[in-house]
Protein backbone atom coordinates (compact mmCIF):
# COMPACT_ATOMS: atom_id res chain seq x y z
CA UNK A 1 0.00 0.00 0.00
CA UNK A 2 2.77 2.38 0.88
CA UNK A 3 4.63 2.21 -2.41
CA UNK A 4 6.89 5.22 -2.59
CA UNK A 5 7.02 7.30 -5.74
CA UNK A 6 10.25 7.10 -7.74
CA UNK A 7 12.90 9.15 -6.02
CA UNK A 8 14.12 12.15 -7.92
CA UNK A 9 17.58 13.02 -6.62
CA UNK A 10 17.49 16.60 -7.88
CA UNK A 11 17.03 19.30 -5.27
CA UNK A 12 13.43 20.53 -5.01
CA UNK A 13 14.50 23.95 -6.29
CA UNK A 14 15.31 22.45 -9.70
CA UNK A 15 12.83 19.53 -9.68
CA UNK A 16 9.68 21.59 -9.01
CA UNK A 17 8.01 22.51 -12.31
CA UNK A 18 8.30 26.19 -13.16
CA UNK A 19 5.41 28.55 -13.83
CA UNK A 20 4.65 29.62 -17.41
CA UNK A 21 7.10 32.51 -17.12
CA UNK A 22 9.86 29.97 -16.33
CA UNK A 23 11.28 32.01 -13.46
CA UNK A 24 13.86 30.16 -11.34
CA UNK A 25 13.21 30.16 -7.59
CA UNK A 26 16.63 31.83 -7.21
CA UNK A 27 14.95 34.98 -8.53
CA UNK A 28 13.08 35.30 -5.21
CA UNK A 29 13.56 38.73 -3.65
CA UNK A 30 12.55 37.52 -0.19
CA UNK A 31 10.17 40.48 -0.17
CA UNK A 32 7.54 38.63 1.85
CA UNK A 33 4.56 39.55 -0.34
CA UNK A 34 3.68 35.84 -0.44
CA UNK A 35 3.81 35.57 3.35
CA UNK A 36 1.77 38.73 3.89
CA UNK A 37 -1.07 37.47 1.70
CA UNK A 38 -1.16 33.91 3.02
CA UNK A 39 -3.79 33.33 5.72
CA UNK A 40 -1.62 30.60 7.18
CA UNK A 41 1.53 32.63 7.81
CA UNK A 42 2.50 32.32 11.46
CA UNK A 43 0.43 29.20 12.06
CA UNK A 44 2.69 26.44 13.43
CA UNK A 45 5.69 28.22 11.84
CA UNK A 46 4.19 28.28 8.34
CA UNK A 47 5.62 30.96 6.06
CA UNK A 48 5.83 30.64 2.25
CA UNK A 49 8.81 32.99 2.08
CA UNK A 50 10.75 30.76 4.47
CA UNK A 51 9.72 27.64 2.55
CA UNK A 52 11.23 29.10 -0.64
CA UNK A 53 14.35 30.11 1.26
CA UNK A 54 14.86 26.66 2.80
CA UNK A 55 14.43 25.03 -0.60
CA UNK A 56 17.00 27.42 -2.12
CA UNK A 57 19.41 26.43 0.67
CA UNK A 58 18.66 22.76 -0.14
CA UNK A 59 17.41 22.27 3.41
CA UNK A 60 14.33 20.54 2.01
CA UNK A 61 14.60 17.54 4.35
CA UNK A 62 13.51 19.80 7.22
CA UNK A 63 10.35 20.63 5.29
CA UNK A 64 9.73 17.06 4.12
CA UNK A 65 9.90 15.86 7.73
CA UNK A 66 7.46 18.56 8.92
CA UNK A 67 3.70 19.01 8.64
CA UNK A 68 4.13 22.30 6.78
CA UNK A 69 3.64 21.02 3.19
CA UNK A 70 0.30 19.53 4.31
CA UNK A 71 -0.98 22.68 6.04
CA UNK A 72 -0.73 24.64 2.76
CA UNK A 73 -3.94 24.55 0.69
CA UNK A 74 -2.04 25.03 -2.62
CA UNK A 75 -4.40 27.97 -3.18
CA UNK A 76 -1.85 29.99 -5.14
CA UNK A 77 -2.54 33.38 -3.57
CA UNK A 78 1.19 33.67 -2.81
CA UNK A 79 2.11 33.04 -6.45
CA UNK A 80 -0.58 35.33 -7.77
CA UNK A 81 0.93 38.17 -5.75
CA UNK A 82 4.60 37.24 -6.28
CA UNK A 83 6.37 39.98 -8.26
CA UNK A 84 8.97 37.50 -9.53
CA UNK A 85 6.70 34.67 -10.66
CA UNK A 86 8.23 32.08 -8.32
CA UNK A 87 6.69 28.56 -8.49
CA UNK A 88 5.73 28.36 -4.80
CA UNK A 89 2.78 25.97 -5.27
CA UNK A 90 4.81 23.48 -7.28
CA UNK A 91 7.60 23.68 -4.71
CA UNK A 92 5.14 22.68 -1.98
CA UNK A 93 3.59 19.95 -4.12
CA UNK A 94 7.04 18.59 -5.00
CA UNK A 95 7.89 18.50 -1.29
CA UNK A 96 4.71 16.50 -0.68
CA UNK A 97 5.73 14.02 -3.36
CA UNK A 98 9.05 13.42 -1.54
CA UNK A 99 7.31 12.34 1.68
CA UNK A 100 7.36 8.56 2.25
CA UNK A 101 3.88 7.32 1.36
CA UNK A 102 3.24 5.82 4.80
CA UNK A 103 3.96 9.26 6.28
CA UNK A 104 1.37 11.09 4.14
CA UNK A 105 -1.16 12.32 6.71
CA UNK A 106 -4.84 11.43 6.83
CA UNK A 107 -6.78 9.92 3.97
CA UNK A 108 -4.90 11.36 1.00
CA UNK A 109 -2.53 8.55 0.12
CA UNK A 110 -4.90 5.86 1.42
CA UNK A 111 -7.45 7.13 -1.08
CA UNK A 112 -4.85 7.18 -3.87
CA UNK A 113 -3.89 3.58 -3.11
CA UNK A 114 -7.55 2.46 -2.96
CA UNK A 115 -8.26 4.22 -6.23
CA UNK A 116 -5.36 2.44 -7.88
CA UNK A 117 -6.77 -0.93 -6.76
CA UNK A 118 -10.52 -0.39 -7.04
CA UNK A 119 -11.15 2.60 -9.32
CA UNK A 120 -12.43 4.91 -6.61
CA UNK A 121 -11.02 6.62 -3.53
CA UNK A 122 -13.47 4.84 -1.23
CA UNK A 123 -12.62 1.30 -2.35
CA UNK A 124 -16.34 0.77 -3.03
CA UNK A 125 -17.21 -2.36 -5.06
CA UNK A 126 -19.10 -1.77 -8.33
CA UNK A 127 -22.27 -3.54 -7.16
CA UNK A 128 -22.50 -1.35 -4.04
CA UNK A 129 -21.94 1.74 -6.18
CA UNK A 130 -24.66 0.69 -8.60
CA UNK A 131 -27.02 0.04 -5.68
CA UNK A 132 -26.47 3.48 -4.12
CA UNK A 133 -26.82 5.36 -7.40
CA UNK A 134 -29.90 3.41 -8.49
CA UNK A 135 -31.50 3.89 -5.07
CA UNK A 136 -31.03 7.67 -5.11
CA UNK A 137 -32.21 7.84 -8.74
CA UNK A 138 -35.39 5.92 -7.85
CA UNK A 139 -36.05 8.36 -5.01
CA UNK A 140 -35.79 11.23 -7.47
CA UNK A 141 -38.06 9.44 -9.94
CA UNK A 142 -40.68 9.20 -7.18
CA UNK A 143 -41.11 12.97 -7.48
CA UNK A 144 -43.79 13.87 -10.01
CA UNK A 145 -41.63 16.31 -12.02
CA UNK A 146 -38.87 13.72 -12.49
CA UNK A 147 -41.12 10.68 -12.93
CA UNK A 148 -39.25 8.90 -15.74
CA UNK A 149 -35.74 9.68 -14.46
CA UNK A 150 -33.21 6.86 -14.83
CA UNK A 151 -29.42 6.49 -14.66
CA UNK A 152 -27.79 4.81 -17.65
CA UNK A 153 -24.52 3.11 -16.65
CA UNK A 154 -21.87 2.73 -19.37
CA UNK A 155 -24.20 3.82 -22.16
CA UNK A 156 -22.45 3.57 -25.54
CA UNK A 157 -22.37 6.72 -27.68
CA UNK A 158 -23.83 8.90 -24.94
CA UNK A 159 -23.34 12.62 -25.37
CA UNK A 160 -21.80 13.26 -21.95
CA UNK A 161 -19.65 11.30 -19.49
CA UNK A 162 -20.42 12.21 -15.88
CA UNK A 163 -17.89 11.12 -13.22
CA UNK A 164 -18.68 11.56 -9.54
CA UNK A 165 -17.08 13.10 -6.49
CA UNK A 166 -16.63 10.29 -3.97
CA UNK A 167 -18.19 12.28 -1.13
CA UNK A 168 -21.53 12.32 -2.97
CA UNK A 169 -21.42 8.55 -3.18
CA UNK A 170 -20.23 8.21 0.40
CA UNK A 171 -21.95 10.49 2.90
CA UNK A 172 -23.59 13.23 0.82
CA UNK A 173 -26.06 11.22 -1.27
CA UNK A 174 -28.60 14.04 -1.13
CA UNK A 175 -26.30 16.19 -3.27
CA UNK A 176 -26.20 13.68 -6.15
CA UNK A 177 -29.52 14.88 -7.51
CA UNK A 178 -28.74 18.51 -8.39
CA UNK A 179 -26.99 17.72 -11.67
CA UNK A 180 -29.46 14.92 -12.39
CA UNK A 181 -32.38 17.35 -12.12
CA UNK A 182 -30.65 19.74 -14.51
CA UNK A 183 -29.80 16.92 -16.96
CA UNK A 184 -33.36 15.63 -16.84
CA UNK A 185 -34.95 18.97 -17.63
CA UNK A 186 -32.32 19.75 -20.30
CA UNK A 187 -32.88 16.34 -21.90
CA UNK A 188 -29.17 15.56 -21.60
CA UNK A 189 -28.00 12.17 -22.84
CA UNK A 190 -25.47 11.38 -20.08
CA UNK A 191 -23.92 8.26 -18.67
CA UNK A 192 -22.07 7.26 -15.48
CA UNK A 193 -19.35 4.58 -15.52
CA UNK A 194 -20.16 1.58 -13.35
CA UNK A 195 -16.47 1.14 -12.55
CA UNK A 196 -13.64 3.69 -12.39
CA UNK A 197 -16.22 6.43 -11.79
CA UNK A 198 -13.97 8.48 -9.49
CA UNK A 199 -13.96 12.15 -10.42
CA UNK A 200 -11.45 13.34 -7.82
CA UNK A 201 -7.76 12.90 -8.41
CA UNK A 202 -6.10 12.86 -4.99
CA UNK A 203 -2.69 12.32 -6.63
CA UNK A 204 -2.87 16.08 -7.23
CA UNK A 205 -2.81 16.58 -3.46
CA UNK A 206 -0.31 13.86 -2.58
CA UNK A 207 2.22 14.94 -5.21
CA UNK A 208 1.87 11.64 -7.08
CA UNK A 209 1.97 12.24 -10.84
CA UNK A 210 1.82 8.57 -11.71
CA UNK A 211 -1.45 8.13 -9.80
CA UNK A 212 -2.85 11.21 -11.50
CA UNK A 213 -1.99 9.85 -14.91
CA UNK A 214 -3.65 6.52 -14.09
CA UNK A 215 -6.94 8.22 -13.15
CA UNK A 216 -6.90 10.46 -16.22
CA UNK A 217 -6.16 7.41 -18.38
CA UNK A 218 -9.21 5.61 -17.01
CA UNK A 219 -11.44 8.48 -18.08
CA UNK A 220 -9.85 8.47 -21.55
CA UNK A 221 -10.53 4.71 -21.76
CA UNK A 222 -14.23 5.24 -20.95
CA UNK A 223 -14.48 7.88 -23.64
CA UNK A 224 -12.83 5.62 -26.23
CA UNK A 225 -14.57 2.35 -25.39
CA UNK A 226 -18.06 3.82 -25.05
CA UNK A 227 -17.48 6.27 -27.92
CA UNK A 228 -18.77 9.18 -25.88
CA UNK A 229 -18.77 12.62 -27.45
CA UNK A 230 -18.12 14.97 -24.55
CA UNK A 231 -16.41 14.76 -21.20
CA UNK A 232 -17.84 16.76 -18.33
CA UNK A 233 -14.84 17.84 -16.28
CA UNK A 234 -15.30 16.56 -12.77
CA UNK A 235 -16.98 19.02 -10.40
Amino acid sequence: MATNPPVNEDPVKTAAPRRPGNQAPEMCLACGTCAAGCPLTGQDGFDPRKIVRLVLLEREQELIASDLPWLCTLCGKCEYACPMGINIVNIVRTLRGRVARDKVPGMIHKGVALCRQTGNNLGLPAEDFEFIITDVAEELAAEEEFADFKIAFDKPEANLLHTLHNKLVNTQNEDLVHWWKIFHVAGEDFTIPRENWEGVNWGLFSGDDEAMQLSVGRIVTHMEQLEIQNLMYPE
Binding site: P39, Q43, F46, W70, L71, K77, M107, W202
Partner: peptide, 25 residues
Protein backbone atom coordinates in the same frame (compact mmCIF):
# COMPACT_ATOMS: atom_id res chain seq x y z
CA UNK B 1 -7.82 36.35 -8.49
CA UNK B 2 -7.18 37.96 -5.13
CA UNK B 3 -9.81 35.94 -3.30
CA UNK B 4 -8.95 34.25 -0.02
CA UNK B 5 -8.98 30.47 -0.12
CA UNK B 6 -11.59 28.97 2.22
CA UNK B 7 -8.86 26.84 3.81
CA UNK B 8 -10.18 23.52 2.50
CA UNK B 9 -8.04 23.25 -0.62
CA UNK B 10 -5.09 21.05 -1.50
CA UNK B 11 -6.50 18.02 0.28
CA UNK B 12 -6.41 19.68 3.71
CA UNK B 13 -9.92 18.38 4.42
CA UNK B 14 -8.44 14.88 4.28
CA UNK B 15 -5.74 15.52 6.88
CA UNK B 16 -6.04 15.48 10.68
CA UNK B 17 -4.94 19.15 10.94
CA UNK B 18 -8.33 20.61 11.70
CA UNK B 19 -7.31 23.46 14.03
CA UNK B 20 -4.98 25.17 11.50
CA UNK B 21 -7.60 24.66 8.80
CA UNK B 22 -10.28 26.41 10.86
CA UNK B 23 -7.83 29.19 11.76
CA UNK B 24 -6.99 29.55 8.06
CA UNK B 25 -10.65 30.18 7.23
Amino acid sequence: GNQYCCGGGGGTLLTPFKAPRIHYG
